[in-house]
Computed example of a mutant assay.
Amino acid sequence: MKVLHNTISNKILRNRMLVETERRTTISFYKYFYIDDPNSFRDTIYRKLNDLHVLGRIYIATEGINGQISVRKNNFNSFRTILYNSHPKLDKVRLNIALDNNVLSFWVLRIKVRASIVADGITDHSFNYLNVGHYLKAEEVNIMADNPDVLFVDMRNHYEYEIGHFKQALDIPSNTFREQLYMVVKMLQHDKNRHIVMYCTGGIRCEKASAWMLHNGFKNIYHVEGGIIGYTNRAKELGLPIKFIGKNFVFDERFGERITSEVIAHCHQCNSLCDSYTNCRNTHCHRLFIQCNNCAKKYYGCCNLLCKNKQLATTSYSV
């Protein structure tokens, strides 16, 4: 039987990606629906996508599917057909094409079965994740954004919010989605009748968050269809003003997609305007942080002098 997982080292796979000449499209997608046998579903879709040389990560659970992948442009239609035909609930599922689609994003295909497609920490068995808020398209988002009585809530981690967000959005200061779900209910206890618009990167977190808010007694809950990616693509297609400023953080090699020219974050070392994330070059640290080019040279790609000295003692580095 064919091996249904990767057996090649990440280093080799990354080098293969870097020399690949065929252009790729980066896509994200998700769908909440019931899967009675996630393991069997996983193995079937792995075989088909691996044969198409699809790269990326896909999570499968009884509650649905969540994927961020890259596919060769000449295989895009085949990929779409496979995905649409893999389950009746996935027929015509929304595919979010990356905003910054000219950068290589993944080098290995990983498809994993998990307890949930987005970690939420919810243990309340009466919670119905399919009872969601109202979807908003880009033109509706802009109308809401111009209304000072509407509250926008960012359902991403604080470091995602730092480099880009809707102008008036509320940041829920947390490191994980599961923390946010409980914090947002607590923070907005006195706003249960207010019109609240929730958003995230591609829609998966804000959709579940909208259901959680309704479950906790909030009345007028909306979420952005397709998240920031879906909003921006549609706004550009329709020639609408973009109400999101800065970069959209993404969880792959790119770290961010430029949406507007504004730089709203600062280098974590010198405080100059900068919105480029990197990982500390000290492999024992690997901290995610914002670093400008000058500090990258000064600290050799590290987050502090201690990490710099450790890195210099083990390897050479050039900017």
Rank of each mutant, 00 (worst) to 15 (best):
V224I: 14
Y84N: 06
N293Q: 14
D36H: 15
G256K: 00
C307A: 08
A265W: 11
C292W: 03
K11H: 07
Y277A: 06
V150P: 13
E162A: 13
N147E: 10
G56V: 03
V319A: 11
K2F: 13
K11R: 11
L109E: 06
T123R: 13
I27N: 03
N304A: 10
N85K: 14
V184L: 12
Y129T: 01
R47W: 02
R24L: 13
I290A: 13
L288G: 07
F255T: 01
F166W: 15
I290S: 09
K297F: 07
M144L: 11
Q189E: 13
D36R: 14
Y135C: 14
N85E: 10
Y59P: 02
A145K: 06
I58F: 00
H158R: 12
H266P: 01
L312T: 03
V184A: 14
N220I: 00
S318A: 05
F79A: 11
Y159W: 12
V184S: 10
N102M: 15
V185N: 03
R23L: 04
N175A: 14
K73L: 05
N294T: 09
V71C: 07
A138W: 02
V103Q: 07
M1A: 09
E179P: 01
Q168V: 03
R16A: 06
Y30L: 05
K2C: 09
N101C: 02
V185Y: 02
E225P: 02
Q189A: 15
Q68V: 05
R24H: 03
E139G: 10
K167G: 10
E140D: 13
L240K: 04
C285I: 03
I97H: 02
S261Q: 08
K298M: 07
E160R: 07
S126I: 02
C270E: 07
Y300S: 10
A61T: 08
R80K: 15
C274L: 06
K92F: 15
H134Y: 11
V54I: 05
T176F: 11
H5V: 04
M213R: 08
F33N: 01
L170G: 08
R254Y: 00
V263L: 01
R80Q: 02
N102G: 09
N50H: 12
H158V: 10
S210G: 12
L13R: 14
T201Y: 15
A98K: 01
E20F: 04
K112A: 14
L109G: 08
A138L: 08
V54Y: 11
L238T: 08
H215E: 15
L99I: 08
N175K: 15
I65H: 13
Y159N: 04
T176W: 05
R80C: 00
N294C: 02
R57W: 00
N157I: 00
G203R: 06
V132H: 12
N74A: 05
E225N: 11
L4G: 11
S40N: 05
